[in-house]
Design a protein around this nucleic acid. Structure first.
Length: 591
RNA sequence: GCACCCGUAGCUCAACUGGAUAGAGCAUCUGACUACGAAUCAGAAGGCUAGGAGUUCGAAUCUCUUCGGGUGCACCA
């Protein structure tokens, strides 16, 4: 149990006690209150707003309620001081042993430290990347990929039952274009001069290999044949090749989805008809005419009766067409069917990570999910804004046409997977992000990636030195968790421990908010606490971690060091970054 | 026209989802290396949280509104 929860229980008990003794009368159930670290360290170790939120139900001023609770809290063994401050905050001071024990907790739990169970009854699917299989992953895809993967890891740590999924569209017009380009490359591989790739097809060289592989497999079997004959098999071949390429790109940054789902299979096995029938049975389908689109010049628009879904009953601004005028499915239908499939598989929380250019998606899909699940499943979308790429301080234009598109591979090769991942998580997904190649590898305070890695490397450095004095057996987490930690008592040391004790709260808050970037901010903060403590040792040799003539003190401080390493590793694990033991000038920040 | 997102120190961003005196880094100014790695640390200065109104014990956060920026708004995929 975390310290916060222990204290929360104690406060609850003191409220109950006050009610039982008649000191406090509540006209309603006690509302939820929080126990959290105060903004100002001078206010104590923990603070609660309990007295303030009780004010209404108790019909008393917050400070008066605090006065009633204060003596009851003071009696408690864990609490060394109680102060009432400001509008009615109750500030608590805890005995140092609490924090010393927290170090033991960390050492014992190892990277499971901070694990939570808040998600244990929720089956959640995170759909991310989902890039169409028409080319390699490029810079524009990386942010969403990293956010999605970090979210999967974060939710798992918070106890959710998580599936990370990739959904690819292998049934639309784009993959036909892919197939035609592949066919051209195939003819090229057979020795034909195909000239320039015509506009509208995919110009990239990556399809040359697909063409030659196809020639290798099938010989000249398709040459001179009608498109009707070769389109389907070559499309399949090309899509498989693209997915293979994308998966190896994703592997470069450590991303491995649990499930890959494709659109074609869903269309072919009749899911769309089935879902349509379900909506029809619910009375949500009718034939009608949509108003003309607003804000766009539509010269060829004319009112046409279409098969519509009553999505406005579920909060949409308009009903949506499910069939085109030619009677074939509208593009939204496979999406609805896909989300039906997610529901059928038992997911009650569906999170999609999408680029900000899909902002209209949520308005359309939420009603559909509500309708097919009878409001039992919730759809959330994390929109991530564009990443502006800079090289040598100059913005790099990303365009498929001009061919100067920066690939994921290029990014990873230049700065390393860990640095790419960490950097992508140093901002709220909604804000635009500048990715400057020079900045990401810069070894200064200004670069959060470096700053956190440096803290970890410093910890490791101390342990390397310590291993000259102590045996490996003396330095295991298990051994260190058993020694006396009374010596961990300076303000800076305790501040660091308090920072680490926050880890579980950060994990829970970040998971509930579905905001993995908070982990990055936390790590930077924790690294700062550590660097601060380290420098005390520069000012005063008695505060260094290794004190040659005091083995007991040194071991206690090594326990602290090890616990810092544990928490940093635990955080890195969610970020998907590899901690570095050493950062020599001849090695990169990147891992 | 409508919807969604954003607007916080000169710059880049936080603020634990309604809490106390709004915090960090960069840049500016002061200080700390016979190095458990100073690639760091300590300090100073910097704010009408875009403007206005409301909700309540309490607002950067919630509501309304004005302004400014981004994205999207088809039977396309």
């Amino acid at each position: 149990m975390t310290i916060y929860r222990q204290i929360h229980d104690i406060v609850t008990a003191s409220i109950d006690e006050a009610v039982a003794s008649g000191d406090l009368t509540l006209s309603a159930a006690a509302p939820t209150f929080v126990v959290e670290p105060p903004r100002e360290a001078a206010h104590g170790d923990l603070a609660t707003n309990a007295a303030m939120v009780l004010a209404k139900a108790a019909g008393k001023a917050p400070r008066a309620i605090a006065d009633i609770l204060k003596p009851k809290l003071e009696k408690h063994a864990l609490i060394s001081g109680v102060e009432i401050a400001g509008p009615g905050f109750i500030n608590l001071r805890l005995h140092p042993q609490i924090w010393q024990n927290e170090i033991r907790e960390i050492l014992n739990a190892d990277t499971h430290y901070g694990d939570s169970t808040i998600g244990k009854d929720t089956k959640v699917i995170v759909e991310y990347v989902s890039v169409n299989p028409t080319g390699p992953m490029h810079a524009g895809h990386v942010r969403g990929a990293v956010i999605g993967d970090a979210l999967v890891r974060l939710l798992r740590k918070a106890g959710y039952d998580v599936t990370g999924e990739y959904y690819f569209n292998d049934a639309g017009a784009q993959v036909d274009v892919l197939a035609r380009t592949a066919f051209l490359r195939y003819r090229e591989a057979l020795g034909e001069d195909i000239g320039e790739i015509p506009a509208g097809l995919y110009p990239g060289d990556y399809l040359k290999e697909v063409g030659s592989d196809l020639a290798k497999r099938d010989g000249d079997k398709w040459r001179g044949k009608d498109e009707a004959e070769w389109l389907a098999p070559i499309r399949q071949f090309a899509v498989d090749a693209m997915m293979k390429m994308i998966r190896s790109d994703l592997d470069l940054i450590g991303i491995h989805h649990d499930v890959f789902t494709n659109e074609r299979e869903m269309i072919e096995n009749g899911t769309l008809e089935k879902v349509f029938k379900i909506l029809e049975d619910k009375g949500l389908i009718y034939t009608g005419t949509l108003p003309p689109p607003k804000g766009k010049e539509m010269e060829d628009w004319e009112p046409v009766p279409l098969t519509l879904f009553r999505s406005s009953q579920f909060g949409d601004s308009t009903d949506r067409a499910l069939k085109k005028r030619d009677g074939y499915w509208a593009y939204i239908m496979p999406d609805i069917a896909y989300h039906y499939d997610k529901m059928r598989r038992g997911f009650t929380l569906m999170i999609n990570v999408l680029g900000a250019d899909h902002s209209g998606y949520l308005e359309r899909m939420r009603p559909a999910v509500a309708a097919i699940s009878d409001n039992n499943a919730r759809l959330e979308v994390i929109f991530n804004s564009i990443v502006k790429v800079f090289k040598n301080g100059e913005p790099v234009k990303l365009s498929k046409r001009s061919g100067n598109l920066i690939t994921l591979r290029e990014m990873v090769e230049q700065v390393g997977a860990s640095a790419v991942r960490f950097f992508m998580l140093t901002r709220d997904p909604k804000s635009p992000l500048d990715f400057d190649f020079a900045k990401v590898v810069e070894q200064t305070r200004d670069n959060p990636v470096f700053y956190v890695q440096y803290a970890y490397a410093r910890c490791s450095s101390v342990l390397r030195h310590a291993s000259e004095i102590f045996t490996p057996e003396e330095l295991t987490n298990e051994a260190l968790s058993k020694i006396s930690l009374d010596a961990i008592s300076t303000e800076e040391e305790l501040l660091l421990v308090k920072g680490m004790a926050n880890w579980s709260r950060i994990v829970e808050a970040a998971a509930l908010a579905q905001e993995p970037h908070r982990i990055a901010f936390y790590l930077v903060e924790l690294a700062g606490l550590f660097h601060g403590l380290w420098n005390k040792g520069n000012d005063n040799a008695a505060l260094r971690f290794i004190i040659a003539d005091d083995k007991g003190l040194t071991l206690a401080r090594l326990a602290l060091i090890n616990s810092v390493r544990v928490v940093l590793r635990s955080g890195f694990a969610i970020m998907g970054c590899k901690p570095l033991e050493e950062l020599r000038s001849d090695t990169s920040v990147a891992a």
